[in-house]
Amino acid sequence: MKLQLKLGAAVATFVIASAAFAQTPAAKPTRIRGEIVSLTGDTLTVHRRSGDTVTIDVKSSVPVTAVKNIKLEDIKPGSFVGTAATTGTDGKLTATEVLVFPEAARGTGEGHYAWDLGPNSSMTNANVDSVVQATSGRDLKLSYKGGNNSVTVPENVPVVTFAPAARTDLIAGKKVFIVASPVNGTQFAAQRIVVEKDGVVPPM
Score class of each variant (00 low, 15 high):
Met1Lys: 08
Gln4Tyr: 14
Ala9Ser: 10
Val11Trp: 01
Val11His: 02
Phe14Trp: 06
Val15Ser: 08
Ile16Tyr: 03
Ile16Asp: 11
Ile16Cys: 09
Ile16Ala: 12
Ala20Asn: 06
Ala22Val: 14
Gln23Val: 15
Thr24Ile: 13
Ala26Cys: 13
Ala26Tyr: 15
Ala27His: 03
Thr30Lys: 04
Arg31Ile: 15
Arg31Asn: 12
Ile32Met: 07
Ile32Pro: 00
Arg33Ala: 14
Arg33Cys: 15
Gly34Arg: 01
Gly34His: 09
Glu35Phe: 13
Ile36Glu: 08
Ile36Ala: 04
Val37Gly: 06
Ser38Cys: 14
Thr40Ile: 09
Thr40Leu: 07
Asp42Val: 11
Asp42Asn: 11
Thr43Ser: 07
Leu44Ala: 04
Val46Glu: 08
Val46Gly: 11
Arg49Ile: 04
Ser50Asp: 10
Val54Phe: 05
Thr55Cys: 07
Asp57His: 13
Asp57Pro: 13
Lys59His: 13
Ser60Leu: 10
Ser61Gly: 11
Pro63Asn: 04
Val64Leu: 15
Val64Tyr: 12
Ala66Gly: 03
Val67Trp: 03
Ile70Phe: 07
Lys71Asp: 12
Pro77Val: 05
Ser79Asn: 08
Ala85His: 11
Thr86Arg: 03
Thr86Lys: 04
Gly88Asp: 13
Gly88Lys: 12
Gly88Pro: 12
Asp90Met: 02
Asp90Leu: 01
Leu93Thr: 03
Ala95Phe: 09
Ala95Asn: 06
Glu97Asn: 10
Val98Lys: 05
Val98Leu: 03
Phe101Asn: 00
Ala104Tyr: 02
Ala104His: 02
Gly107Phe: 08
Gly107Ile: 03
Gly109Phe: 13
Gly109Asn: 10
Gly109Cys: 07
Tyr113Gly: 12
Ala114His: 10
Asp116Met: 04
Leu117Asn: 04
Gly118Met: 09
Pro119Phe: 12
Ser121Ala: 13
Ser121His: 13
Thr124Val: 13
Asn125Ala: 01
Asn125Val: 07
Ala126Cys: 04
Ala126Leu: 02
Asn127Ala: 01
Asp129Ile: 03
Ser130Cys: 04
Ser130Ile: 10
Ser130Lys: 03
Val131Ala: 01
Val131Pro: 02
Gln133Tyr: 10
Gln133Asp: 15
Ala134Arg: 00
Thr135Arg: 01
Arg138Thr: 09
Leu140Tyr: 05
Ser143Asp: 08
Ser143Leu: 01
Tyr144Cys: 03
Tyr144Met: 02
Tyr144Glu: 00
Gly146Trp: 01
Gly147Thr: 12
Gly147Tyr: 00
Asn148Ser: 15
Thr152Val: 15
Thr152Ser: 15
Pro154Gln: 02
Glu155Tyr: 14
Glu155Ser: 14
Glu155Cys: 08
Asn156Pro: 07
Val157Tyr: 06
Pro158Trp: 02
Pro164Asp: 05
Pro164Phe: 06
Arg167Thr: 10
Ala172Phe: 09
Lys174Ser: 13
Lys175Ile: 06
Lys175Arg: 13
Val176Ala: 12
Phe177Asp: 15
Ala180Gln: 10
Ala180Met: 08
Val183Ala: 09
Val183Trp: 03
Gly185Gln: 07
Gly185Tyr: 08
Gly185Leu: 12
Phe188Val: 00
Phe188Cys: 07
Phe188Tyr: 15
Gln191Cys: 04
Arg192Glu: 09
Arg192Leu: 15
Ile193Cys: 11
Lys197Cys: 06
Asp198Arg: 02
Val200Gly: 10
Pro202Lys: 00
